[in-house]
Amino acid sequence: MESILTWITENQQMIYIVILMIFLGIEVIGRVPSLLHTPLMSGANAIHGVVIIGAIIVMGKAESDNYPALILGFLAVILGTLNVVGGFVVTDRMLDMFKKKK
């Protein structure tokens, strides 16, 4: 319990960010028309692909002979990239259709 409290104190900056982001996320999304909900979901899907950065860090820190970590990390990088690239490309394809009519 105490270690969790210390952790909160040490990471108060992060906790502030979390809380502000929650409100910002709700504000921003609340204004999106239902017409664009599918691209929105898909765009948000691409953005959480930011988890790839964690995969890169984990991969880059692994000792060169720690094969289990290397293999798991390698998989993580592939999956994370799939999420980012696939997500943005799919969203772009959808939004492209909304654009060209203008």
């Binding site: 992060m14 979390v18 982001m21 609340g30 959480h48 950065i53 964690g54």
Partner: peptide, 19 residues
Amino acid sequence: NNKVMLTGGILVGAAGTLL
């Protein structure tokens, strides 16, 4: 302690929940 992962993740988390 990575701010971009945190902002991106929470933003999507909040947005997804609202949606």
